[in-house]
Design a protein around this nucleic acid. Structure first.
Lengths: 337, 337
DNA sequence: TTGTATGCGTTATCAA
DNA sequence: TTGATAACGCATACAA
């Protein structure tokens, strides 16, 4: 690879001038510029990015941290992020944290060390205080995670309200024994959704039965296992609210395997509206998050943080959600079940 | 951030010694090591990665290039890659090319410039010759793409044979008018699968009707549109072979929307065996790729290339596939047609 | 066993 | 408008 020194030799000017040409500095004579450009072309010279980044502390790269790559929930979000990033000349890298604190720490170290210009974090397993500390000094946006109490840029829907709305919808269908299958409440995200369920019950004066509340890995298998557990425990219920579409899909499969019909025997609803949810039979009633917008807003916010315009690092961006009624929730029950 | 110079001042030794301690060099007196370690701890000193990388030309980072992030097909592959990478102390970054030559070029430039130590490329939109050129000088593994003629490390199944087997299976069920919905044949991957279809027809002496062959975007919508086109054209067929599960899923949806039953009216099969395929009704008959193994082997191969053991850059790794029979292909037809 | 000094390729400051 | 030169933080060859 040719270096700037090679260009210097061939063009007969100084490094400073080559650098000026490279960055379209105005104070270069056209003739000089031509000479330099010719040399660059002849040598097929391209500036060494690592050296540039080392020197300038800027990479024009942004990292998106996902808890689990391949969750289709994130693909549309990423498209939103990429659209905004491309416009601003940034490139997007994605990394998988597997909800591992170690991995997340590694990637945040990359940020602190300026190997990347910013992080949009959908993972957020690190302690809130630590995240706030880092976010106060580096461009960080947390999306779809954390409670509103966190003092850092945060793009999300109101998970509690959405879960409450969804639960209320089910209750209004006439269900009184409504089970809940949720993700690990160690994550604020799932805690919020569970609270929404609690609140809906409370407001409608329906007693809470802890037997009906199950925690599961937030995937199809997790939903399957949790629903199986509910059935085996013999506890009575006519509907299941979940904190994720994959959980709902797994639960439906378990119900079917136990010869029950959804929604006729048991009504089910999900959360997220992933692509699959409108394709499976029965189609899934769920909460739709504005995925493209989540992506766009997150990246816009990050760009503000990167360019330093935004000193208020505690801003929350709460986006609208939408309850999507499909087949899995069924119709109104004539008599409460 | 503290630098190595700060450690030098605090510990009273030279940079060289600090560096030795940092890299567990044996030739350091225990007492000296203690002093340095104490200083490092007190200053919370962490080596600047960018400077290290710039100096050593090594990053311990590997990039995985995907044509489209969020395709669940890749998630298990990535787990395989990550498992092998973690063992070797490497970290995985993922980037989306959207099948854009520009983006892919950008990321390969990152490789050439040593911003990353290697690339596993599932995208591969660049001209074969260009890729071969880069791969001959840099650690590159191409996976699930390209023909076997390419002279670079390549991990894949035999797409042609798999597609031929799958088509033969459908023909053996008694179908004679078998349509094909495939991805863009600009990609060798889809060319191979289409050839498999052709070969199966030829070997069984079934005349080829080009009206039955459709090209589509390799997603659900693409499959839906292509199947709709087939139905509207009025051409006769009793089965559809596809070059991807998403295409098959879209096709099934189109058939259902036209009041046809799968597999009773039309039999359908996919390719890849993505997660959804065993969950949708009807469950999908398809070709299963050994995804975890594809990931592991790709990363192993890349590590060999990185450590330079492997001078033979043309090695092909062809893995086994498996035909998975489920509901969408239906049973044997008593009378052909 | 330890220290000195050089260079990696670039940008940026200052002087001319 | 241009050039000389000093950083950036680290690793390492060589000397001591």
């Amino acid at each position: 690879m040719a270096t700037i020194q090679d260009v210097v030799k061939l063009s007969g000017v100084s490094v400073a001038t080559v650098s000026r040409v490279l960055h379209d500095s105005p104070n270069v004579l056209p003739a000089t510029r031509e000479k330099v450009l010719a040399a660059i072309k002849e040598l097929d010279y391209r500036p060494n990015r690592l050296a540039q980044q080392f020197r300038t502390q800027r990479t024009m790269n942004v990292l998106v941290l996902l808890p689990r790559l391949g969750d289709s929930f994130y693909s549309e979000i990423l498209r939103g992020i990429e659209a905004v990033a491309a416009e601003a000349g940034y490139h997007i890298f994605v990394a998988n944290t597997n909800n591992s604190v170690e991995l997340e720490t590694y990637f945040f170290e990359s940020l602190i060390q300026k190997q990347i210009d910013g992080i949009i974090n959908f993972s957020a397993c690190l302690p809130k205080e630590y995240m706030e500390e880092i976010a106060s000094q580096n461009p960080v946006v947390v999306a779809c995670r954390y409670l509103s109490e966190a003092r850092l840029p945060n793009v999300t829907i109101d998970n509690m309200a959405a879960s409450k709305d969804m639960t209320e919808y089910m209750l209004n269908l006439g269900h009184r024994r409504v089970a809940y299958i949720g993700g690990n409440t160690a994550l604020a995200l799932y805690r919020s959704r569970l609270s929404g369920y609690y609140q809906a019950l409370e407001e409608m004066n329906i007693p809470l039965d802890e037997e009906l509340v199950r925690m599961a890995d937030p995937d199809i298998q997790g939903g399957y296992d949790a629903a199986t557990g509910l059935l085996r425990s013999g506890v009575e219920f006519s509907a299941i609210v979940t904190s994720g579409d994959t959980l709902a899909i797994g639960a439906i499969k378990a119900l079917e395997d136990h010869h029950m019909t959804v929604p006729d025997d048991i009504a089910v609803c999900g959360f997220d509206d992933i692509e699959m949810s409108s394709l499976l039979r029965p189609t899934l009633t769920t909460v739709r998050q504005p995925r493209s917008l989540i992506g766009r807003r997150s990246m816009e916010k990050l760009l503000e943080r990167i360019s330093g315009q935004d000193s208020d690092s505690g801003e929350q961006i709460i986006l609208d959600y939408e309850i999507v009624i499909r087949a899995s929730s069924g119709k109104i029950r004539s008599e409460p079940g």
